[in-house]
């Protein structure tokens, strides 16, 4: 019963006419197997630079699996096997010459459940820059931490308690802390797997605003079960179904005029 009229795709701020935006990441024929079970059946998808791409689809269709392919988090699952081509700036990220640690610094990730380290707020944010040697000296690190927290919209709330544990924050604050932690290593792409699913509407609105601001500097891929959210924050939307990517297009197009009837059924809430 989701009223289609409620869904108002945010008009893309940047001019769409003529020039096609650059492609940041590209997937061609990506298949993923968990043991004998195939979770993705050949996905072709372009992720455009400095845009928000939303992945939607019913539970278990492979959205998280696809997202985790983009920064090779699936490498950590023993039984997972990835086939197909996946590139970042035209470079195959599954190539032998690619250092996975460096790749994950370039393609950061924010998880469904806020997962701050059981350390101080400061240490949470400074950890990434520290291991990658991005800040020389304490002053520079302080600056990185402040800037990251500011960008994540958390600075004002925590600036007086940077030494307190990050786990002591509220759920929404924790999630913004995780975003700040991801931003602190200056990634080019940020992957978000249902970042708002554990949050209340106000915290969700915060994060959505934040995503909209981050778009100016980062390429974002977001998985969400919330159609309104996809419509509000993304410029491009891809609909996944049973391990396949059924349809991808401008968000406005997908929500107002989907080509595939499965897409239409899903976004209007008829099944999922």
């Amino acid at each position: 019963m989701v009223a289609q009229t409620q869904i108002q795709a945010r008009a893309d701020a940047r001019p769409q006419g003529g020039v096609a935006p650059a492609v940041k990441m590209e997937a061609r024929g990506v298949k993923v197997f968990y043991g004998a079970k195939q979770a993705l059946k050949g996905i072709d998808l372009d992720v455009r630079d400095r845009q928000v791409t939303a992945l939607i689809g019913p539970s278990g269709c492979g959205k998280s699996t696809f997202l985790r392919c983009l920064n090779r988090m699936n490498d950590t699952i023993d039984i997972a096997r990835v086939e197909g081509l996946m590139t970042l700036d035209g470079q195959d990220i599954y190539d032998r010459s690619i250092d996975v640690v460096q790749l994950r610094a370039r393609v950061g990730m924010v998880f469904q459940k806020p997962n701050p380290f059981p350390k101080s707020i400061y240490d949470n944010v400074s950890y990434g820059p520290k291991i990658h040697g991005l800040a020389a000296g304490k002053d520079e690190m302080d600056e990185v931490v402040e800037k990251s927290l500011q960008r994540a919209g958390l600075w004002n709330e925590v600036k007086d308690r940077l030494r307190e544990p990050g786990t002591g924050l509220s759920g929404g604050q924790q999630q913004r802390l995780c975003i700040a932690r991801a931003i602190a290593v200056s990634p080019e792409v940020i992957l978000m797997d249902e970042p708002c699913s554990a949050l209340d509407p106000i915290a969700t609105a915060h994060i959505e605003e934040l995503i909209d601001e981050l778009r100016a500097n980062y390429t974002i891929v977001i998985v969400t079960h919330n159609m309104q959210q996809a419509a509000r924050v993304s410029q491009r939307t891809a609909f996944f179904h049973l391990g396949e990517m059924v349809e991808v297009g401008d968000t406005e197009e997908i929500f107002t005029n989907p080509h595939d009837e499965r897409t239409q059924g899903y976004i209007t809430g008829r099944y999922g």
Binding site: V101, R104, A105, V185
Partner: peptide, 27 residues
């Protein structure tokens, strides 16, 4: 040790050894 801690560290580009020595082992 919850896997989410490992994922968090891996997700910002810590190597496996760093994940273990900085996060998992202390916990």
């Amino acid at each position: 040790v919850p896997p989410s801690i490992r994922e968090a560290a891996l997700g910002i580009g810590a190597s496996r050894l760093q994940v273990v020595t900085h996060h998992v082992l202390p916990l």
